[in-house]
Simulated assay, not measured.
Amino acid sequence: MKIWITAIAIGTTGVAALAHSGATGVVLERMQGMSAMAKTLKTLSPMMRGQVPYDADVVRREAGAMIGHAGEQMTRLFPEGSGGGVSKALPSVWENSEEFAALAQELRTAAEGLKLSAGNGLAAAQGNGSESMMGGATDGMMGGGSAPAMGGGMMGSDLPMTTEMFADMPTDRAFAMVAQTCSACHQKFRKEDK
């Protein structure tokens, strides 16, 4: 079993290295951070859809990883002049830096909220039906469709979300907010993959 896990880890590292070939310094660091957050979404998405057993500890761990790459930790990796080359950052990162920073902070709040909501479980387990929670929310992040850009607060509201607002929220709803925030940022600030 350890040999198989090691082989997967080596294979994943090789793919990540290939995807970031040519990147150095702060560009490489931010690409690695974005890859770590994408891994979190890919790890949690099947759980949120009920395709694998729900595990609150895994949710907390993965949300913690995302928290470590969001907010100021993210924005500091986009200094002026660090676009171009292998970078996937659009010029809008620097042209609309306040909006970019707001979305980075919104992502941190949503990730903190996801971690806080981990003990709540999925909406279906609460009798709320998880399909309506997860419908298109992760599709925009995971490859199909797109989530609407955020307004003044999460989910298009004019009121900014706070971490405490997640306390009683089903975990899949909190996860949908994380995914929508990622998607909104990618729509405005990231070059599309070809």
Rank of each mutant, 00 (worst) to 15 (best):
I3Q: 14
I3M: 13
W4V: 15
I5S: 00
T6P: 08
I10C: 14
G11L: 15
L18R: 12
H20K: 05
S21M: 14
S21E: 11
G25R: 00
V27W: 06
Q32T: 10
A36H: 06
A36Q: 13
M37K: 00
T40H: 01
T40I: 04
L41V: 11
K42I: 05
L44N: 00
S45I: 03
S45T: 03
P46D: 06
D55I: 13
D55T: 13
A56N: 07
V59W: 02
R61K: 15
R61T: 12
A65I: 10
M66K: 05
M66Q: 11
M66A: 05
I67K: 03
H69E: 01
A70P: 09
G71W: 01
T75D: 07
R76E: 12
P79I: 03
E80F: 06
G81D: 05
G81M: 08
G84F: 11
P91Q: 13
P91G: 03
V93D: 02
E95C: 00
E95I: 01
E95G: 04
N96L: 06
S97E: 01
E99P: 00
A102N: 05
L103S: 04
L103E: 03
A104T: 13
T109C: 09
A111G: 02
G113E: 03
L114H: 08
K115A: 08
K115G: 07
K115Q: 15
L116T: 14
L116E: 06
G119S: 13
N120Y: 04
G121P: 04
A124W: 02
A125S: 15
G127H: 12
S132Y: 08
M134N: 00
M134Y: 09
G140D: 07
M141L: 14
S146Y: 11
G153R: 04
S157E: 14
L159E: 10
E164D: 11
P170E: 05
R173N: 00
A174H: 00
F175R: 06
M177K: 05
V178N: 01
A179P: 03
Q180N: 13
T181K: 08
C182M: 10
S183M: 13
A184L: 10
Q187W: 04
Q187T: 04
R190G: 11
R190Y: 01
R190D: 01
E192T: 12
